[in-house]
């Protein structure tokens, strides 16, 4: 990744134009040509530096739901439970963390009702309790990683 790539990543994290020739508009702000911007975004995606280029949706406003859930899993049982949890398509991401509560995952469902159902299904499949930690209030941050 060179300085131009870094400038592209930093700018696109702030947003992307919605107009007829959005790459041309974004490229102009970066002092690049449209073709070069497209080629570089393609390369950043291929290299895995960017995982996605497009919209981030607001699940609740689409009628869906999101929640954070946590589990306390005995270490010698972790791999078994982890495999089961990751097998659920509603599990959007999942991190092992250093704590007695050692598994933290996000559930994304198409309806609010489905959150409770998936939690019950995970508890039944794993034999472990799932703690639902839905957001009550969000404090907005400027989500940016300085590249």
């Amino acid at each position: 990744m060179d300085d131009v790539d870094r400038a592209i990543v930093n700018q696109l994290q702030g947003g992307f134009p919605i107009c007829e020739r959005p790459y041309a508009e974004a490229a102009a702000e970066l002092g690049l040509g449209e073709d070069e911007l497209i080629r570089r975004v393609e390369a950043l995606l291929a290299a895995g530096t960017l995982t996605r280029f497009g919209p981030m949706y607001h699940a609740e406003r689409l009628g869906g739901a999101l929640t954070l859930a946590a589990m306390k899993i005995p270490l010698d049982d972790f791999e078994r439970v982890n495999a089961i949890v990751n097998g659920f398509p509603e599990v959007a991401h999942n991190y092992a963390r250093e704590h007695e509560f050692n598994m933290w995952f996000v559930l994304a469902t198409e309806t609010p009702e489905r959150i409770g159902e998936v939690i019950a299904e995970i508890e039944q499949a794993t034999g472990c309790k799932v703690y639902n930690m839905p957001k009550l209030e969000e404090f907005f941050v400027g989500l940016r990683f300085e590249a």
Partner: peptide, 20 residues
């Protein structure tokens, strides 16, 4: 309109922070 209504939170890139 979807962006103005907040259905689309953000239009841009998703960065794999590990790679940065």
């Amino acid at each position: 309109q979807l962006k103005a209504g907040g259905v689309i939170r953000r239009f841009g890139v998703v960065v794999r922070h590990h790679e940065l």
